[in-house]
């Protein structure tokens, strides 16, 4: 659906514009909402294209260069298309000690992608992430907005199966 939106309409929708401006109202200067503005676009389109970036910059009275400088600093702003679900695999210390390397390998084997890659059906993108603040449940994955605790191979099958169909 997102892909279609993206192709059919490169203009920000009214809803997107309203949400970006709502965020901007939280700050004395509109540019304060740059990150949240980009995240609004991402919520609807999955990623931030050059056209979207330009429109958000206009809404927030920023130059394109300035906003792109912000967009490229933050790892959760995607400046290229990603899958419908992004898999964030925690590779920080506690998860590493409890086998996150192995979990990452299993995901790569199953989906045929490495870090930074997207499956050919556009379903998943795999990325590493710093500690997700759930180290007592290591190893941990975040798939879309959902956090998965104590991930093992059996659970991985379930997580990826339910979504792959």
């Amino acid at each position: 659906m997102r892909d279609q939106d993206m192709r059919v309409d490169s203009q920000l929708s009214e809803a997107e514009i309203a949400e970006v401006l709502e965020e901007a109202s939280h700050y004395p200067e509109k540019s304060g909402a740059s990150i949240e503005g980009l995240k609004v676009v991402q919520k609807y389109r999955g990623w931030v294209s050059n056209e979207s970036l330009k429109q958000v910059a206009d809404l927030l009275d920023m130059s394109v260069e300035e906003l792109d400088g912000v967009a490229t600093f933050y790892n959760l702003i995607y400046r290229q298309p990603v899958g419908r679900k992004v898999i964030l695999c925690c590779d920080s210390v506690s998860c590493w000690m409890l086998g996150s390397d192995n979990i990452k390998q299993k995901i790569s084997d199953r989906l045929g992608i490495e870090y930074g890659g997207t499956t050919s059906d556009g379903e998943y993108t795999l990325l590493p992430i710093v500690c997700l603040g759930a180290c007592d449940h290591a190893p941990v994955l975040m798939v879309g907005d959902e956090l998965h605790h104590n991930v093992d191979e059996a659970q991985l099958d379930q997580i990826l199966n339910t979504r792959a169909s």
């Binding site: 939280h26 700050y27 200067e29 540019s31 304060g32 909402a33 740059s34 990150i35 949240e36 980009l38 995240k39 927030l60 920023m62 400088g69 912000v70 600093f73 933050y74 790892n75 959760l76 702003i77 992430i129 710093v130």
Partner: peptide, 26 residues
Amino acid sequence: YLHSSAGRYICGEETALLNALEGKRA
């Protein structure tokens, strides 16, 4: 207000956080 960020550990350093909150590189 709630500001939801977009990653990078350095944002937790308090002055980098202020830049991030102003919508800049942290």
